[in-house]
Amino acid sequence: MEQKKTEQILHLLAKDSRLTNQEIAVMLDSTEDEVAETVHQLEKDKIICGYHTLVDWNKVNDEDVTAVVELRVTPQGGDGYERIAEKIKDFPQVETLYLMSGTYDFLVMIKGTTLKEISLFVSGNLASMEEVQSTTTHFALTKYKELGVSFATPKSDKRMVVTP
């Protein structure tokens, strides 16, 4: 499949992963088989890394706690950051991990059920790593938007119902 169409498939699925291969084929003037094959290849190449659902967990239980942890580290050797990242990303509590420019090195997003649980995780598992110099933990209070989707306020059409 041509590169442009492959990219269009990715854009469509990134917005709505429940679109069927058949629906995508219609929108891109392709065939269901061709789309299926392309998606399969994208999955194999780990370009498509998963299909997730955006949930506003606060509506289900407000027990969930999200924290953002800034880590400063002292990397050892040429691939020092890589090796630290490998260790951190294996913790199931870690949802998102970035290497950053600026005043700290890693940004770690963690989800837990209580403040205490997260604090224990940070002190027990992150702060205790020998490469880690310091941690700063911020707890999120309200989530307004994720992956381009606004929470809380329902999406409303700002246009009038009928216009010429």
Binding site: D157, R159, M160, V161, V162, T163
Partner: peptide
């Protein structure tokens, strides 16, 4: 509505 004559 599919009645609108302007971009979404």
């Amino acid at each position: 509505s599919l009645g609108v004559g302007e971009p979404d």
